[in-house]
């Protein structure tokens, strides 16, 4: 550990900080893989340190295997296959029901919110990011409901809770209920049904389990304050 007992780290809410680190890691994991991500996944340091972070959260979350034997190109191709490339398919050709018009596991919350319009989901997120002074990088912009944005935002709120003030915890709980909980469960369900997910299958399990555990913990803590 880089910290010592005299480090100001002692003055930061370590549990929330660790949760923030887990969210930041998950955000990276669901982005198109970079070489550094692949290296950490291949040599096992990703799994080990993520496990260590989770140990510091006080949440009881099992960590699945998060290593890969893929070389970098294979991992990138796997990501593309699962998350990026897709087209319309039909599950039932007799009644014409449409399975998906995107990839097998879309990384957008609105795809898992059949009762909510795209606009409703995205507008609410837009206001949420905006409320906290955050904007989407326009150099390579994506929709507000992109899972990585939501995970980055969850990490941001957790770090605010760790370093600025507890009231972020209420926002975190609300964010789980309004958005991230739906996205995480949807992505995990789809990943569980998808063959050949390799490391992404593990990340799907972790995503769902961690978000659920964090949410339930927040709900317990804030039961009287909502």
């Amino acid at each position: 550990m880089a910290t010592t007992p005299t480090d100001p780290m002692d003055d930061i809410d370590e549990d929330a900080a660790a949760r923030g680190a887990v969210y930041a890691t998950l955000a990276k994991a669901f982005e198109y893989p970079e070489e550094s991500f692949h290296s950490a996944a291949a040599d096992g340091t990703l799994e080990a340190d993520l496990r260590a972070c989770l140990d510091r959260t006080g949440l009881n979350v099992a960590v699945p295997s998060l290593t890969t034997d893929d070389d970098y190109k294979t991992l990138a191709a796997r990501y593309n296959d699962i998350f990026e490339l897709g087209y319309s398919e039909y599950t039932d050709r007799t009644d014409g029901s449409l399975e998906a018009e995107g990839p097998p596991v879309p990384l957008y919350e609105s795809k898992y919110r059949p009762d909510h319009s795209w606009n409703d989901v995205n507008l609410d997120l837009s206001r949420a990011y905006s409320h906290y002074g955050l904007e989407i990088d326009q150099d390579e912009r994506d929709n507000h409901d992109a899972l990585t944005y939501e995970l980055e935002f969850a990490g941001y709120l957790a770090r605010r809770e760790a370093a600025v003030g507890e009231d972020a915890a209420i926002a975190r709980l609300d964010f789980h209920d309004r958005h991230l909980g739906h996205a995480a469960a949807g992505v995990a369900d789809r990943l569980a049904d998808e063959p050949g997910t390799d490391i992404y299958g593990g990340f799907g399990e972790l995503l769902e389990a961690f978000v659920r555990a964090d949410r339930n913990d927040l709900a317990d803590r804030l039961e009287d304050r909502r």
Binding site: A2, T25, S36
Partner: peptide, 12 residues
């Protein structure tokens, strides 16, 4: 943030 927690394996 991860480094602060000593999680150097998450430096990416």
């Amino acid at each position: 943030a991860a480094s602060l927690l000593g999680a150097t394996g998450l430096s990416f």
